[in-house]
Design a protein around this nucleic acid. Structure first.
Lengths: 222, 222
DNA sequence: GCCATTACGTCACGGCATGCCGTCTGACGG
DNA sequence: CCGTCAGACGGCATGCCGTGACGTAATGGC
């Protein structure tokens, strides 16, 4: 029972989330329960050997309920794989429009990945476990691809806002793709090692290096 | 995984294809039959409304045989989506090692896509049809993601050979990812339009522009 | 407190995907 | 030319996947 605790503050501007009701919070909790159950079973016995029924049982819901939350058993770990990208994108969206692209991207990724927050570290380690399980499971890899693809699409409007009309839509889309690739490859590379979550081979450092390599310094010479 | 059946030929330089036997040719033909049957059904009534049984029947094989060739009904169109990338990669592999990356990539893609070969045009139009069907079918999109991912991985050794030790492995991988993205986004963009297979909005021109935008002129300043 | 809404469980069912076995055909050495 | 054998294919059976339909209980607005 995560006590999220976000409360309605009188002065709230338009785009802020409306206060989540009890039902909504329970739904979110149920979704996370299922996701965690799936991740644990996948990481231990592998997705192939895990049935949707088992995931549902471990999460304490009926099979039918499982399929109300997810289209397939592999999809169940999706929320756990997206949290990192969501965090990064949210940080990036806070940068002022028109700021230079490269530094903004790298700054956001550093904040998102190099955090001492124990919950974020936990998420990072879970991601590594899933990526390793995905190494020999095509269906799980497919989820990873899909998640990255969706991240790329969600990144487009954010990049467009930062570029502020200085780049045409096609270019924006390419930058979004490249940035997503940089993060993806950094995480994949890190998952293949025994490196810790901090230090020179940490995901944050890797990601920053990847971003710089693909997009250059990126202090916005149009 | 077919057991290749490589026959001993006295004078054989390593990389030449062994002469395909009748059985092998028939297998390849059957695979293409199934792929074409699937592509046609997917393009008309959509993947969701198409059963594996129907694909098999239209291809003239038993359902069991279908699943000997493909792991799922969506996978059946895989071979049709890979031909373009295969062609491009093969052309790229012919470039001399050490040649500048950017021009090599753009030259290969131009040869692969701007060809007057009617068969290649046919393949392009088929790809467009499949991409449009994928627009509202997650499972088919997943195949597209997988194909691109595999293309990226197959591209890595080719790029490494071209870079000829002037770039470290991580960098090579990033370049492979970016190049794959450029082609992918060019094709996706083109598929969303009514543009012809040649002209200023042709896939070839789009791809070249995307490559230049992401990788710069690429005349190899290390 | 009363009712519309909605999240959840139970049942049933068609399609997906694979293991097993029998048949037949093409490949290959004698 | 022929016998042997690998393997390509079809048919059958089966377990899991994913969804529609319907009933129930809890929730949130009036």
């Amino acid at each position: 029972m995560p006590s999220d605790g976000r409360r309605p503050y009188a002065s709230r501007v338009s785009t802020e989330p409306p206060p989540p009701t009890l039902t909504e919070r329970r739904k979110a909790a149920t979704q996370l329960d299922i996701a965690h159950a799936a991740a644990e079973l996948f990481a231990t016995r592998g997705p192939e050997a895990t049935t949707a029924e088992e995931i549902a049982r471990r999460a304490g819901v009926a099979l039918r309920t499982f399929y109300r939350y997810f289209r397939s058993k592999q999809d169940a770990v999706g929320p756990l794989l997206t949290v990192g990208a969501d965090r990064w994108r949210a940080l990036l969206a806070e940068a002022p429009p028109g700021s230079p692209l490269g530094p903004a991207l790298r700054g956001a990724v550093e904040q998102a990945l190099a955090t001492p927050d124990p919950q974020a570290v936990e998420a990072l380690l879970r991601t590594r476990g899933l990526l390793r399980a995905a190494a020999d499971d095509p269906a799980l890899r497919a989820v990873w691809y899909r998640v990255n693809q969706e991240s790329e699409e969600l990144l487009i409007p954010v990049i467009a806002r930062l570029a502020d009309g200085r780049r045409d839509p096609l270019e924006v889309r390419l930058v979004a793709a490249a940035a997503t690739d940089a993060i993806r490859i950094a995480l994949e590379t890190w998952s293949g090692t025994e490196a810790a979550t901090e230090g020179p081979d940490s995901p944050a450092d890797l990601a920053v290096r990847c971003l710089r390599s693909l997009l250059g310094p990126g202090d916005d010479t149009p």
